[in-house]
Design a binder for these strands. Structure first.
Length: 817
DNA sequence: AAAATGTGTCATAAA
DNA sequence: TTTTTATGACACATT
């Protein structure tokens, strides 16, 4: 009975997850409390009804595992596997950082497009006052939708009184999901990002779920980069502000929506739980939401991935259904088709050329991880809490908190797999543990990185190539050749040989220590590999980059006189930028290094040529500039309040430079951009066109001067940095050369010593065999062997030999003189 | 709170 | 001479 219960609960978890995927809402309590057989039947038998037979068959044939009744979980498992293979494929393709970002961004539109087709779930949700948000869900407004959405939130938030943090969070996530699935966002990552940020804020850092928050940071960073790529700024995700506002906003909706959507115990239970947790601040809000956050996210990510890679017709239904999980009326007709779409990716997954063993290991790592997290969080609730509530709570929670809780839904599902296995075949259960513990380290570097990311519950690691993970440039991909590897080896060899030499040959202590120092320094250099590779590799490209920079500098300076707009561009030649970006992307700079490069190689003038990007170049401003600009360009929907408008104005003001403020104050009729970047002639023409006061003129000239100087300073700093880096590289090269020369010297000394020893032994042998007329050996103290120039050997008295030796010693000195 | 870093500006020299 | 560029130095902001 106990096993049955366990099985039921676990299966129930899987099942609910699956159902949540499908978009069917089922009251689990009824099954759990009263009707066990039906539940079992649902889990075991009819699962085939939700899945397409062909996929099962295919899977079975490929995997070698028989069709398990609990195919739902297997579905999750295979979905995960497919995702894994996708991630691996990413890794394999060595997609550069920027490209991967683009990939994500492009993937979203697909999901949004597909999601925008069936907006049923959204329609349901919008009934509770979300129409503003979900109304423009045809992808027409795209990012604007999002903006309007957030602004709506802000607007509402200004009015709504704060209630329970958990409730708000939950509502927020639901809202976000609505915007996700049906909103037709080109960039669903933005709300996701902000929500994640919110999640991070809401979570107590000390709670067990804080692990997820760390990943969230990574994910946020990645997503943020996407957004930056698309022109959005981090400001969009200003957690501390937005989160609170949204929280409050959600409150508003929560009141109505929750009552609307969840009638019955589930809702009550949820509310109860949430409230209690929110007040007490117990483990639940951090743990369970955290865990389920991950789950939901990963599932959603799964869906998106699936959509991206398997643009089947049915896939179009995913987002909407996912979005409508909580609100959708359970419809029996839907699931099969949906299941079909759900499973279709599995086909491709099984088709993936990757090693089954490896995938299995990957999966095992996930399962292990899940076993830790889910068992401690979700299962706790499942098992320890009263029978009815927890399940319903879980059920309602998972679908309702898609974003923040996204992270672990995936794990939960995967974990469900492991649990399933354990249920059915203990030997299989053993496998994961053994594999994950023992085999993982042995897995090739690719999968190791993957596994590590998995085991660290790193969502970013789950869905992005390792290079992307958080610091992105932190670690060069395993495929990337370590330019310092050879050096390191060399240095180590050097050191070894040196020590060897010093020990064996009784090397001159001073010299030996010197050499040791040398090698130490050298090896220290190499040990600083985290730093060296970048500079080294950069040096490879940097010879070109430096040359290009020098050439471009001269060229630009010459060209600038003739064509000042180009001259304004100055050092920031495209080629150089590309070079360095390539180097950066390929080699994987150190974080600070990449920071350097980003800072230094951003083309300020180019940016300034694009007004909307003008402030991206400056770290101060680009945090808030894009959002401000966005909001400026796309005035929020009618619901905007004065407060937020003021905020917008503030943002605008903040984003504007001092000179821009001054120009505005002086009512200067053209843009600072023109003032600064126009060639002198055109600039003068422009001035002549207007009747400008003396103050205005002087301000304009100051603006021009300052603007040009600003760019000049940027170029100067960039150049300075280039110089420093080049010098650094040169120093490294020289140190390498020095080490090499020293090594060669040591080698020569060693061989010389060996030769001397050999000669000495030969000498003694020959001398020992010499006999005088009387057959007696010559005394070494009285005679010596003298090597003649022609190769002959003479036996001469010691005295003569000493004299000759002295002469020979003097001769070189004389020559020198 | 202090240090490190980034950025804008000014003064000045040079082209 | 005027304009532009380069650069050191400083102040301020951000991290």
């Amino acid at each position: 009975m106990l096993s049955l219960k366990k099985y039921l609960t676990e299966g129930l978890l899987q099942f609910t997850i699956l159902l949540s995927l499908i978009g069917v809402r089922v009251d689990v309590d009824t099954y759990l409390t009263s009707q066990l057989p039906p539940l079992r039947e649902i889990i075991l038998g009819p699962s085939s009804a939700y899945t397409q037979t062909q996929f099962h068959n295919l899977r079975n044939t490929l995997d070698g595992y028989g069709i398990h009744p609990k195919s739902i979980d297997l579905d999750n498992y295979f979905t995960a596997r497919r995702l894994l293979s996708q991630v691996r494929a990413l890794d394999r393709f060595q997609v550069p950082t920027t490209e991967v970002n683009a990939w994500l961004v492009h993937r979203d539109p697909e999901g949004s497009v597909s999601g925008s087709q069936p907006s049923s779930g959204l329609a349901l949700e919008s009934s509770s006052g979300l129409q503003d948000v979900t109304g423009p869900d045809n992808g027409v407004r795209e990012s604007e939708t999002e903006q309007g959405f957030s602004e709506d939130l802000e607007d509402l938030g200004a009015v709504a009184p704060p209630v329970s943090g958990d409730l708000t969070k939950e509502t927020m996530t639901r809202l976000d999901r609505s915007s996700h699935g049906g909103g037709g966002h080109v960039k669903s990552s933005r709300p996701l990002n902000s929500l994640l940020a919110g999640h991070r804020v809401a979570q107590p850092p000390s709670a067990p779920g804080s692990r997820a928050s760390v990943q969230d940071i990574d994910l946020i960073d990645i997503l943020w980069r996407q957004d930056i790529d698309l022109g959005a700024g981090r400001e969009v995700f200003d957690y501390s502000h937005r989160q609170k506002e949204q929280d409050v906003d959600k409150e508003l909706r929560d009141g109505g929506e929750q009552a609307d959507t969840w009638a019955g115990e589930g809702a009550e239970a949820l509310a109860r739980d949430l409230l209690v947790d929110g007040e007490t601040g117990e483990s639940f809000p951090a743990q369970v939401p955290g865990g389920e956050d991950q789950t939901a996210l990963s599932l959603e990510e799964c869906l998106r991935l699936l959509e991206a890679t398997c643009p089947f017709g049915e896939n179009a239904e995913f987002p909407a259904n996912v979005a409508s999980i909580t609100e959708a009326v359970p419809s029996e007709s839907e699931p099969p088709a949906l299941q079909n779409s759900l499973l279709s990716p599995l086909l491709t997954g099984t088709e993936s050329p990757f090693d089954l063993e490896q995938q299995w290991q990957d999966l095992m790592s996930i399962m292990e991880m899940q076993a830790m997290e889910v068992n401690t969080s979700a299962s706790e609730i499942l098992y320890n809490a009263p029978p009815g509530d927890p399940l319903s709570t879980n059920y309602s929670l998972a679908p309702n908190t898609p974003i923040n809780q996204n992270v672990s839904l995936h794990q939960a599902s995967l974990g469900g797999c492991s649990q399933d296995f354990s249920l059915f075949s203990p030997e299989v259960e053993n496998l994961p543990v053994a594999n994950s513990s023992t085999l993982l380290p042995l897995v090739p570097s690719n999968s190791t990185s993957l596994n590590s990311t998995f085991s660290s519950t790193n969502l970013a690691g789950l869905f992005f190539p390792p290079q992307l993970n958080g610091t992105a440039n932190d670690t060069a991909g395993p495929e990337l050749p370590d330019p310092l590897g050879g050096l390191l080896d060399e240095a180590m060899l050097d050191e070894i040989s040196l020590m060897d030499l010093a020990i064996e040959e009784g090397f001159n202590p001073v010299q030996a220590s010197q050499l040791e120092e040398e090698f130490d320094s050298d090896s220290g250099l190499s040990l600083d590999s985290s730093h060296s590779p970048s500079s080294l590799s950069s040096s490879e490209g940097s010879s070109s980059s430096s040359s290009s920079s020098s050439s471009s500098s001269s060229a630009s300076s010459s060209a600038s006189s003739s064509f000042s707009e180009e001259g304004a561009v100055g050092y920031s030649s495209d080629s150089e930028t590309v070079d360095l970006e390539e180097a950066e992307g390929a080699v994987g700079y150190q974080p600070e290094y990449s920071k350097f490069c980003r800072m230094s190689y951003q083309d300020p003038s180019q940016l300034s040529c694009l007004p909307y990007l003008e402030h991206v170049g400056h770290n101060h401003t680009y945090n808030m500039a894009p959002s401000a600009l966005d909001s400026a360009d796309l005035p929020p929907p009618s619901t905007l309040k004065k407060g937020s408008k003021e905020k917008q104005a503030d943002f605008l003001d903040k984003q504007m430079s001092r000179d821009e403020h001054r120009a505005r104050a002086m009512k200067i009729p053209f843009t600072n951009d023109k003032i600064i970047n126009l060639p002198v002639e055109e600039f003068n023409e422009l001035l002549s066109k207007y009747q400008l006061s003396e103050a205005q003129l002087s301000l304009i000239r100051d603006i021009r001067r300052r603007g040009k100087n600003k760019m000049a300073a940027q170029n100067c700093r960039k150049r300075k940095l280039d110089t420093i880096l080049n010098l650094e590289r040169d120093v490294e090269d020289l140190q390498r050369d020095k080490a090499r020369l020293l090594r060669e010297k040591v080698e020569f000394l060693r061989s010389l010593r060996q030769m001397k020893q050999k000669v000495q032994s030969l000498y003694q042998e020959v001398f020992g065999r010499l006999r005088d007329e009387n057959g007696r050996p010559y005394s070494p103290s009285q005679y010596a062997l003298q090597y003649a120039g022609d190769g002959s050997v003479l036996l001469i008295p010691r005295t003569m030999a000493d004299q000759q030796a002295r002469r020979q010693e003097r001769k070189p000195k004389d020559r020198r003189k």
